[in-house]
Design a protein around this nucleic acid. Structure first.
Length: 148
DNA sequence: GACGGAACGC
DNA sequence: GCGTTCCGTC
C-alpha cells in the first residue's frame, strides 16, 4: 500500500522497476541501475555518459566504472567483466537492453519516463513538461516525470 | 566484447 | 532477490 498513488487520479502505468525506492532505511544495498543513474546525473568527467538516443548511455571507461561500483559495494575486485554480467541480468527484467553493434553502449528501457531525484536530473538541455505525479511515501521513492 | 549458465553469498 | 564470481562459447 506504500506504492499506491495518492489522490483520485486513475492509476498510471509505469513499469514496476520505476517504483523501486532509491534508498531504503537501514542497510538495503544500492542497486546498480541506481548507481548508474547517479553517475549519469553528475555529467561531465565521469566514466559513463548519455548516448545519442533517449535513455542510451555509453560506458567511456569500463574499468574505472567497475572500480567505482566496487568501491560503493565494498568489492575491491570488481571489474567490467563482472559488472557487465550484472547489466545482462537486467535484460530479462526489462530495465536495460544492449545497443547492438555499439561498444559499451546500453539503453534504459524508460520511454517517456525519467527518474529525477538523482543529482543533476534532468540532464541539461532537455525540455520537460511535468504531467505526472509525485509519489509520496516513506522512504522516498523516485519522482516520476512524464516527458512529452 | 558480449552472452548466459551455474554456484554462491548475503 | 540482486548481484558476484567464474567460465565456456560465439
Amino acid at each position: 500500500e506504500d506504492r499506491k498513488v495518492t489522490g483520485k487520479e486513475k492509476p498510471l502505468l509505469f513499469p514496476d522497476w520505476a517504483y523501486k525506492p532509491a534508498w531504503s532505511p537501514g542497510s538495503r544495498q544500492v542497486q546498480l541501475w541506481h548507481f548508474l543513474l547517479e553517475l549519469l546525473g553528475r555529467g561531465e568527467g565521469s566514466a559513463i555518459g548519455w548516448g545519442g538516443e533517449w535513455g542510451e548511455f555509453v560506458i567511456r571507461d569500463p574499468e574505472r566504472l567497475a572500480k567505482l561500483w566496487g568501491e560503493r559495494k565494498g568489492k575491491p575486485h570488481m571489474n567490467y567483466d563482472k559488472l557487465s554480467r550484472a547489466l545482462r541480468y537486467y535484460y530479462n527484467k526489462r530495465i536495460l537492453h544492449k545497443t547492438k553493434g555499439k561498444r559499451f553502449t546500453y539503453k534504459f528501457n524508460f520511454s517517456k519516463l525519467i527518474l529525477v531525484n538523482y543529482p543533476g536530473y534532468p540532464p541539461p538541455g532537455l525540455q520537460v513538461i511535468i504531467t505526472s505525479l509525485q509519489l509520496m511515501s516513506k522512504p522516498p521513492v523516485l519522482l516520476l516525470f512524464h516527458f512529452i
